[in-house]
Structures are given as structure tokens and as C-alpha cells.
Deep mutational scan, measured.
Amino acid sequence: SEEELEEFAKEVLRRGITIIVNGIRITEVEIFVKVLREILEKR
């Protein structure tokens, strides 16, 4: 749901943790923004 997305976004921003994806360091915020864009483009 959109509320869950908002909560996830807030949690990500609070933690600001960097994770490893395919050997490249990407912040969770960047991943969230990318996923959010993909979701919005599909609408």
C-alpha cells in the first residue's frame, strides 16, 4: 500500500544504510527512488 511505501521511505531515510548490490555500493534511498520511479512509470 502507499502507506507502507511511505513508512519504508521514512525508515530508509532514518537509517541511511549502504548495502552492496552486485558488488556496487548503493544506498537504500537510491534503490527506493529507483523502485518508486518504476512503479510510477507502470501506472
Rank of each mutant, 00 (worst) to 15 (best):
I24D: 05
K10D: 04
L40G: 04
V29Q: 03
K10G: 03
E2I: 15
L36A: 00
L40Y: 05
V33Y: 00
G16K: 06
R43L: 15
E6S: 07
L5I: 08
K34R: 07
E11F: 00
E2H: 12
I26D: 04
V33H: 02
T18L: 12
V29E: 05
V21A: 08
V35C: 08
I20R: 05
E30W: 05
E7K: 11
E6T: 12
N22W: 04
V21E: 01
V12D: 00
L5M: 06
T27Y: 12
I31M: 10
A9E: 03
F32S: 02
R37P: 00
R37I: 11
R25D: 11
E2K: 13
I24G: 03
V29G: 02
E38R: 00
R37M: 13
L13S: 02
G16T: 04
I19N: 00
G23M: 11
A9Y: 12
R25F: 09
V35H: 07
E11D: 10
S1T: 12
E3S: 13
V21K: 03
E6K: 11
G23S: 06
R43K: 13
E6H: 11
K42W: 06
E7M: 08
R14H: 08
R14C: 10
G23C: 14
R37L: 14
L40W: 11
V35N: 03
E3W: 14
V33D: 03
K34A: 09
E6M: 14
I39D: 02
I17P: 00
E6P: 05
L40R: 02
L40I: 10
V35G: 00
R43H: 13
G23L: 13
V35E: 03
E28C: 06
V33A: 01
E28L: 13
L36H: 02
I20P: 00
E28S: 15
K10Y: 05
E6A: 11
V21F: 09
G23K: 03
E11L: 00
L13C: 02
I19D: 00
E7L: 05
G23T: 05
V29P: 08
V29F: 10
A9M: 13
I26N: 06
R25N: 12
R14E: 10
K10V: 04
V33C: 11
T18S: 11
I26M: 07
I31W: 12
R25S: 10
E7F: 07
V12M: 14
F32A: 08
A9C: 15
L13M: 09
E11Q: 06
A9G: 03
I26W: 05
I26L: 10
L13I: 13
E4A: 14
F8N: 01
I20K: 06
E3P: 08
F8V: 03
R43W: 15
R15P: 07
I39R: 04
V29C: 14
K34W: 04
K42V: 09
V35K: 04
V21M: 10
E2D: 13
R15E: 08
E30L: 09
E38I: 04
E6L: 15
E7T: 06
I39H: 08
R43C: 15
E38K: 06
L36I: 09
I24H: 08
T27M: 08
L13Q: 01
L13A: 02
V33T: 02
F32V: 07
T27F: 08
S1R: 11
E7G: 06
E11R: 06
V21R: 04
L5E: 02
R25M: 11
L40K: 02
V12R: 00
L5N: 02
F32T: 02
L40N: 03
I24V: 12
E30A: 08
T18Q: 13
V21Q: 05
E6C: 15
E6R: 15
R25Y: 13
S1P: 10
R37V: 10
R14K: 13
E28Q: 11
V35S: 02
I24F: 03
R37N: 05
N22D: 10
E2W: 15
I31V: 08
E4R: 14
N22V: 07
K42E: 10
R25E: 11
G23D: 04
V29R: 01
E4I: 13
I17E: 11
E30T: 05
E7R: 12
S1A: 13
E4C: 15
E28P: 04
V29D: 02
E30I: 07
I24Y: 01
V35D: 01
I17D: 07
V21W: 09
A9P: 04
I24P: 07
V21L: 14
I24E: 07
E3G: 13
L5H: 01
E30S: 07
F8M: 05
R43I: 15
T27I: 07
F32E: 02
T27K: 06
K42H: 11
R14N: 10
I26S: 06
E41D: 10
R15L: 13
A9V: 12
G23E: 03
E4D: 12
I19S: 03
K10C: 13
I31Y: 09
I17L: 09
I20A: 05
T27V: 11
I20V: 09
K34N: 09
I26V: 09
T18M: 09
G16M: 15
L13N: 01
S1N: 11
E28F: 07
L36Y: 00
E2T: 11
E3D: 13
I26Q: 03
G16Q: 07
E38Y: 06
I20H: 07
V12F: 03
A9I: 15
E11S: 06
I19V: 10
E28I: 08
I24Q: 10
E41G: 12
G16W: 14
E38N: 05
L36M: 09
T27E: 06
N22A: 08
V33F: 01
I24K: 08
I17S: 05
V29T: 04
G16Y: 11
I26R: 02
I20Y: 02
K34S: 08
I19A: 01
T18R: 10
I19W: 00
E41S: 09
E6F: 15
S1M: 15
E38W: 05
E7N: 12
L13Y: 00
E41F: 04
K34V: 06
I26E: 03
R15V: 10
K42T: 10
E11M: 00
I24S: 07
T18V: 15
V33K: 01
